[in-house]
Design a binder for these strands. Sequence first.
DNA 1: TCGCGGCGTTTCACATCATGAGATAGAATC
DNA 2: GATTCTATCTCATGATGTGAAACGCCGCGA
Lengths: 271, 271
Amino acid sequence: MPNRTPSRVPARKEQAKSPIQVIGRMMRLLDLLAEHPEPLGLKQIAQYTGLHPSTAHRILNAMAADRMVDRVEPGSYRLGMRLLELGNLVKSRISVRELALPAMRELHAQTGETVNLSVRHDDEIVYVERTSSGRSAMRVVHVVGARAALHITSAGKLFLLEEGFAKVREYAKRTGLVPHTKNSIASVTLLERDLARIQRQGWATDNEETELGVRCVAAAIRDDGGHLIAALSLSTPTERMKPHWGPLVKAAADKISHAIGHVPGVRIGTH
Amino acid sequence: MPNRTPSRVPARKEQAKSPIQVIGRMMRLLDLLAEHPEPLGLKQIAQYTGLHPSTAHRILNAMAADRMVDRVEPGSYRLGMRLLELGNLVKSRISVRELALPAMRELHAQTGETVNLSVRHDDEIVYVERTSSGRSAMRVVHVVGARAALHITSAGKLFLLEEGFAKVREYAKRTGLVPHTKNSIASVTLLERDLARIQRQGWATDNEETELGVRCVAAAIRDDGGHLIAALSLSTPTERMKPHWGPLVKAAADKISHAIGHVPGVRIGTH
DNA sequence: TCGCGGCGTTTCACATCATGAGATAGAATC
DNA sequence: GATTCTATCTCATGATGTGAAACGCCGCGA
């Protein structure tokens, strides 16, 4: 197909993925504007995207009419307010629980162990969802709605770490770090050391700290703003816990984060 | 009426605002998906938008390829993740937001009422951020991204005042000062009188002019050039509004302006 | 088991619609 | 005031999106 663009810079090969050219071009324009925080002039836009200035102008105008892009001044464009509205709409419709379930089932199928989803509520974590089967007679069951202190659960430790060490000391003073078993972490120093290790390895553990004979691994679930909103955890009888399940839980949690819209490295808003 | 598409119903007159039909149709699809939280089937989409099923399908596919819409299962569509990403980008580029949040939270803590941050966009104000809690069952909630006319909101009046009385008359002529409630200011004379009062006292009010039963107070947020860039407002049910909250909102707005780099008296650049 | 109806998807000849070279307008620079 | 940038508009051209119809798939009921 003889695409008779003069000796214009090739820029990039016309991507064939879009069944409709105009929409593909629209996306290239949005991509470009997304990459540049400052408003761009029509000339640059045309050059970067490889579109004819006339074409770029026409499409940008159409988008501006629907507030998808903002024409800040003649010939100067940036991403528009409509995107903010639609984005918030998408966000408001996300349910962590629903999006987490497939990955939870998969993790459960791989391990055969109980998988929990929990969120923070004050100084405790609350179990929000669970997948377990009758495959094994002996299994760890947390009732949905049950709660537990932050410092004695793998999921809780993730929330403590998120707040930073200053707040951890406040938490310790406030609650007194009441131990539940002989393995529970009862000193701030040990807790901080444990949190540092969690930060390094990417997932948290609970070595019979909530209940003797029960071990857990947990990993963080983050939203589009990079904020910790939930924790995915795996609970097993001590003797059945496998070392490689840590990364496995981490991977499942990352998959859920991705489904929610999390992009590693992105952090918006001030907590 | 049988759904047989032969006697094609116009559904709605093709809106002529988009210079490119495909983009206009895309917007209609996005609008429809925005209105419906649950995923929609192709058949319904085609019916609601008046598009041919084949056309709707083709456009939706193109959008799905770029993740603007999400094809949750064959023939079932909803708004896509890309919108969340782009929306966050837009949001992150409104820097006032971040700097305003601490003061907004403080003001919220002092009053217990909903605090809004808004900016001007054309002849409307757009709500950019909100702090509200579940402390009180009854509260005033503006959706982030929502818009409202300038002359019926306390925040909007600040922007009108900023432009001077000459431009206010232009605005009045342009928009017709459409009233929203029986309290809305619908005459230029009254509007000018209100603006003069706002200028004297340093903050703006909205006495059930947007919605009956709701009152607001707003104050200006200015950048280092002395330009009005945003407005901080407090919305309450009429009976809960306290007279001393005016100065309080003004003080909070001034604090934000200071954080941005505003120095009272400084005014640079044009207009 | 077979046939039927509904739905999403794909196809393809047609003509509508987006295209881009060029003209125009407007703003900055020399 | 001439020059040279832009952004915007115009319009003949044919590439490109259109939609009726055909296809394939599934579930339902006979």
